[in-house]
């Protein structure tokens, strides 16, 4: 049997193409299409042009939600990168105990975010949560509770996200560390470089592509945050944890305004694409020591 010819190749590509058209292209195009309609579930569609897009400029809650999303993404990803880098360097030694630790550290990432959210909801319960209890015993002022005070609710969501996803960062960076060539280090040592210099001028630049990929994955993922917040605060108290996806969910599935919710989703999609393009440019840019 010989597989040859463009027709055969196309034939093999056909199932995945059909799959992508049905599950990816069609929903995206349909979403784009209905974003130009005043469409509520159970009512007929009415074409309104770009009115949905104009309405969001006055949608105070959506604007607030974009701001909260930015704060969440920047702080969560920054903490995950910092902790991820530090832990990866700590674990970058070969011994039996390190192997065990490297496996154990992945546990939080295995949790479904919704389950992680529910577990943390119980742990941080303002009256009955064990974490709340010990924080109060330590004399730390957490007000009425970390998840119910406006000043700390977003912080607690960031903390949970960092707990869950730092291990992923660790594993990606650790894989990058393992693949670094030994020669530059040897040259550095011969030239009398200190451990800090080796890290700053050899490890970090060589790790850059790995870090950029890890940042891209986590940034896009953090932009989509929904489940942890839904399980714990549902966007409250007030609008303190109303990220863009919570607002979109409210509009689409609580108010059933599918047309307007689609236009909001499209804005989030464009933001995601822009972030993706930016990271890919950094990854491939020579100016930033990229891989091209």
């Amino acid at each position: 049997m010989q597989i040859s010819g463009r027709r055969t190749i196309h034939l093999f590509l056909l199932p995945i193409t059909v799959y992508l058209i049905i599950f990816f292209l069609y929903p995206v195009l349909f979403e784009l299409y209905i974003s130009f309609f005043d469409y509520s579930l159970g009512s007929p569609k009415k074409f309104i042009g770009i009115k949905n897009y104009l309405a969001m400029l006055k949608d105070e809650e959506f604007i607030i939600s974009l701001r909260i999303t930015s704060v969440f993404v920047v702080s969560a990803v920054f903490c995950q990168l910092t902790f991820g880098l530090l832990i990866a360097i700590l674990l970058n030694h070969e011994s039996r105990i390190m192997n065990i630790i490297r496996t154990l550290i992945l546990i939080p990432t295995v949790f479904t975010p919704l389950v992680a959210g529910l577990v943390w909801k119980a742990l941080l319960h303002p009256d009955l949560g064990p974490v709340t209890y010990y924080l109060r015993q330590l004399g730390i002022n957490i007000g009425r509770g970390l998840t119910v005070e406006r000043s700390t609710a977003l912080f607690s969501i960031v903390m949970i996200d960092v707990w869950e996803w730092t291990p992923l960062m660790v594993i990606i960076i650790l894989a990058g560390l393992k693949s670094l060539p030994e020669e530059p280090y040897e040259a550095g040592r011969i030239d009398g470089a200190s451990a800090w210099h080796l890290f700053r001028y050899i490890t970090l630049p060589l790790l850059r592509p790995t870090v950029v990929v890890a940042l891209l994955i986590r940034t896009l993922d953090a932009l989509k945050i929904f489940d942890i917040i839904w399980a714990i605060t549902r966007g409250g108290p007030g609008t303190a944890t109303t990220v863009a996806n919570i607002r979109i969910y409210d509009v689409g599935l609580q108010h059933l305004r599918i047309g307007y919710a689609s236009s909001l989703s499209n804005v989030l999609l464009v933001i995601g694409i822009l972030i993706g393009v930016l990271f890919v440019n950094v990854l491939y840019s020579r100016k930033y020591g990229g891989i091209r």
């Binding site: 319960h125 303002p126 009256d127 119910v148 605060t233």
Partner: peptide, 10 residues
């Protein structure tokens, strides 16, 4: 503000 357990807000 005055009468409920602290966590009642959630």
């Amino acid at each position: 503000d005055k009468w409920a357990p602290p966590g009642a807000i959630g």
